[in-house]
Structures are given as structure tokens and as C-alpha cells.
Amino acid sequence: MNCRRTLLFLLCFLSLPALAHKASDSYLVLEVSGSEVRGQWDIALRDIDFALGLDLDGNGEITWGEVRSRHADIDAWALASLKVLRGGVCRLRVTDHLVDTHTDGAYAVLQLAGECPRADGDLSLNYRLLFELDALHRGLLRLTFDGTPHSGVFAPERAELQFVTGQRSRLAQFGQYLVEGIWHIWIGFDHILFLLALLLPAVLVHQDGRWRGVAHFRDALREVLWVVTAFTIAHSITLSLAALGLVQLPSRLVESAIAASVVLAAANNLKPVVEGRRWLVAFAFGLIHGFGFASVLAELGLPQQALVLSLLGFNVGVEIGQLAIVAVFLPLAYGLRDTAFYRRGVFLGGSLATLVIALIWLLERAFDLKLIGA
């Protein structure tokens, strides 16, 4: 019974946030040269609306007029969440307001300028935007510090970043991208649902029109290793090609194809067409998922001085994140494989729920609709 509860909790945990869209990020670009600070901060309008309430008429759409009327409030809210320190607190101000579009919607663009008390010494950045309201929020940083490029990610548990003038650790760079790779597979709900749709039948065999539990754990493990290895190789290929700028595909096409891959994987569980070679499905659609991972990496930014190392760190992080999901799911699924709870509730019910969710994603992404609230 404990195994059932744990597995059901895991499926619910992974399915509930699947109704969401891209996790909340902001993009902070700073150049600190001597005592001078210049930069740009892109913050999603939906996040600003969540914190401040921009949609004054309540019609579900945020207009430029509504944003412009709250410029002073936006400035005060944003600047209260960011501190730049070099020899003391640097005085920051917003010099201009723009609007830009990212892959997940419209963003307010705040042009920043400021002065620090000193023109030398180390730099400290403290970022706390939205952390009290959204634990999934991340601040993606691209910094040029006295001519040396850096990158970083702010999170609730990592709200302050330190930079030493003229110094940069490649090992730290690798570790940072490793952690972000793990994090982004765990919040990449479409990638997780695709992987789970392929893993659900790994502990079953389809015989005489019925699903039965596999005889031995090694049979399920072999199937999982084939699927995960094929998916890993495929998305590693396209992730690397896209991150290095060798191949580019339109974001809308990639996101629609990822949703379609989840639809087909779930549908194959309900009416098996591809049996015994699910690794081929994992490889074919893994090529598409690699472009999805690359879009995340593009937003993070790859430092040119540690390009290969950072790319490797992110890729390894993605694999660790996948293996963690497999390590939790597979033993539980194997233990329940012969029960009606697993075959009907988890396998068939989970596949049907995944199919419905993925169909909604596909319609939204292919036709630029909004069927589920962000």
C-alpha cells in the first residue's frame, strides 16, 4: 500500500504542474566597468501582473497603456529586489522602458544605469525578485565585469553571487551548468511526461491483446536502459548542434513537435503500434527534445571562454535529472506491475491523462492559442 501511495503521489506531482507553461525566468544583463554600471533587465509581464496587478480592466490582456501607467511602481518593485555592491551599495536607476517578446510571451525591458562607491575590488550581486511569491522563479544573469564575461543563475537558495575581479573558475562554471541541467529537466514537464510515457510500459509485456507484468526485473531494466540511452544520445546530438549555432529551428515548430511526441508516446500505450522497439521512438523524438533543451541553454547563455565545459555540464545535469526520475519510478512500478492499480490506474489512466494534456499543449503551440491559464 505504501508503494501505491508513493507512486500515485509521484504521478500526481509530475502531472499537476504539467498544466503550466514555461517556468518563470527573468533575464538580467549587466556590464560593470570600474564604478559604472549599465544593463538591461527583462521581466515577464505576467510576472509583474502577478506581483503588482497590471491588468486594470480585468480583461485578461495587458496593454502598453496599463504598463506605462505603472512605470514608477515597476521601477520601485524591481530595484528593491536587486542590489549591486562594489565598495558599498551601487546606486541604480531605470533610464528607459521598452517591451520585448520572448518565446513564452511579452516582457518589460528595464534599461539600467548606476554608479558604485569604488572603481576596484570584488563585486556582489543580490537578487530577490519574486522569490517570496514563486519558488520556481530564476534570474538568469549575463555579466561583464571589468572586461571579463561571467554568467550565473539566481535562485531562492542562491540569491547572492560573488565575483572576484580578473578571476574565473572553470570548475565553478561546470558545476553551475550541471545544477541548471538537473533543474531544467525537473521543471521541463513536457520532457518528463514524454519520458514517463515511454517508461510506463517498461514493466509490462503486451500478449494476446492484454498487458501483463514482466517476469524479471532485469527485463524491465534492460528496456529502460535502451529507452533512456537512445533518448540521451539523440537529444545530446541536437542540443550540441543547436547550442553551438550549427542548426537552428523555429521555436514554435520545436515546441509543437515536442507536444506531438508526448501525444504519440501516450497514444501508443493505449493502442500499441510500436512494441519492443520503443528505443527507436525515444531516439527519433529525442532529436526534437534536444532543440527544446537548447532553447533553455540559449536563455542561460553559454560563456565563450568555457563553451564546451559549460555545454557538457548542462548535458550531464540533464542526464542526472533523468536518472533520478528513473531511479524513483522503476522500482515502484516493478513492485506494482501485476496489480490492477498499476495496469488500469497508473498505466492506462496515466497514459490517457498524459494524452489529454499533450493534446492541449499541441493545440496551444501549433495554433498560438491559450486554452489553459499560465
Rank of each mutant, 00 (worst) to 15 (best):
336 L>I: 02
250 P>S: 01
227 V>I: 15
22 K>H: 04
254 V>Q: 01
24 S>V: 07
317 G>Y: 02
58 G>T: 05
280 L>T: 07
75 D>W: 09
361 W>A: 00
154 F>W: 14
79 L>N: 09
165 T>Q: 15
104 D>F: 05
373 G>Q: 10
215 A>P: 00
120 D>A: 15
357 I>T: 13
26 S>H: 08
81 S>R: 14
21 H>Y: 02
301 G>K: 06
176 Q>A: 14
125 L>M: 12
103 T>Q: 14
275 E>R: 15
225 L>T: 05
298 A>L: 10
291 F>L: 05
332 L>Y: 04
193 L>H: 11
162 Q>W: 12
145 F>S: 11
171 L>V: 14
38 R>L: 07
220 A>W: 00
287 L>F: 03
330 L>A: 04
293 F>W: 01
90 C>T: 01
318 V>G: 01
125 L>E: 10
309 L>H: 10
286 G>F: 04
158 R>H: 13
256 S>K: 03
318 V>D: 01
12 C>Y: 12
268 N>S: 09
73 D>C: 04
163 F>S: 08
152 G>H: 09
304 Q>E: 11
354 T>F: 06
289 H>D: 08
56 L>Y: 06
351 S>H: 13
235 H>P: 05
92 L>S: 05
289 H>V: 07
94 V>H: 00
218 R>T: 11
358 A>K: 11
367 F>L: 15
81 S>Y: 11
153 V>S: 09
284 A>G: 15
227 V>E: 03
